[in-house]
């Protein structure tokens, strides 16, 4: 049997030249597409099938009294902007990591995390606020599908934050040299994915009536 490579090379060898971990995170993201497709599909199939209020758009009746529209667009537009900002910031952080620019890496990573935390905060506020306005988790199909879809997205954002904070701690301890930038790139790819899911949810749930 012919020898192809020296042993030292074997652990870095990949047939495509793409790092295993990068391919893995993309594969996982592909799989996650189906997860969110199922949740979005459920939301859309049940849209407008409620037997009682509230509904997402327009006025609705609670004990015979007209209520204002449930979904609050300005609030969620603010949250959407935060996520878009954070996606922008994390590419700058990654750029810094790859160039070995520590200040750029840590500064933008911190900014990303701050935006993410505010997004989650926005969502917590939104959920609480809706609950006070009479929309509990089990109130009707809209409330259940809405909280489940956006809640699972929020859970993904939270996990992404945990990941980014972990990378930040590693970077602060000076253990994220350019050759290990992939450790940030994987977290960043996941973070962007969470962002693009929101890019879909934002019009589908909030803007389309």
């Amino acid at each position: 049997m012919a020898t192809a490579h020296a042993h030292a090379d074997d652990h870095h060898y990949t047939a495509t030249g793409i790092d295993n971990r990068k391919l893995a995170i993309w594969t996982f993201i592909g799989s996650e597409c189906m997860f969110f497709a199922s949740l979005i599909g459920t939301y859309l199939v049940y849209k407008g099938r409620d037997v009682v209020g509230p509904k997402p758009h327009g006025e609705w009746l609670l004990n015979g009294v007209a209520q204002e529209q449930m979904l609050e667009i300005p609030l969620v537009t603010f949250g959407t902007a935060l996520l878009l900002f954070s996606s922008f910031f994390v590419v700058l952080a990654l750029n810094g990591a790859q160039k070995g620019n520590r200040k750029q890496l840590i500064g933008w990573l911190l900014a990303t995390i701050v935006c993410g935390v505010f997004f989650v905060g926005m969502q917590v506020y939104e959920f609480n606020h809706f609950a006070h306005r009479g929309m509990g988790y089990t109130t009707n199909l809209f409330s259940s599908t809405f909280y489940t879809l956006t809640g699972f997205h929020g859970t993904h954002v939270t996990l992404g934050l945990v990941w980014l904070v972990s990378v930040l701690v590693v970077a602060l301890r000076g253990k994220l040299p350019p050759e290990k930038a992939l450790n940030l790139e994987m977290a960043a790819l996941y973070w962007h994915f969470v962002d693009v899911v929101w890019i879909v949810i934002f019009p589908v749930v909030y803007l389309i009536r």
Binding site: Y13, T14, A15, N20, T27, S31
Partner: peptide
């Protein structure tokens, strides 16, 4: 397991395969 084997098949084919 599926992520693992997907990556394995794409990336760990012997040189030339």
């Amino acid at each position: 397991a599926a992520v693992n084997f997907f990556v394995t098949v794409i990336n760990l084919r012997a040189p030339g395969m």
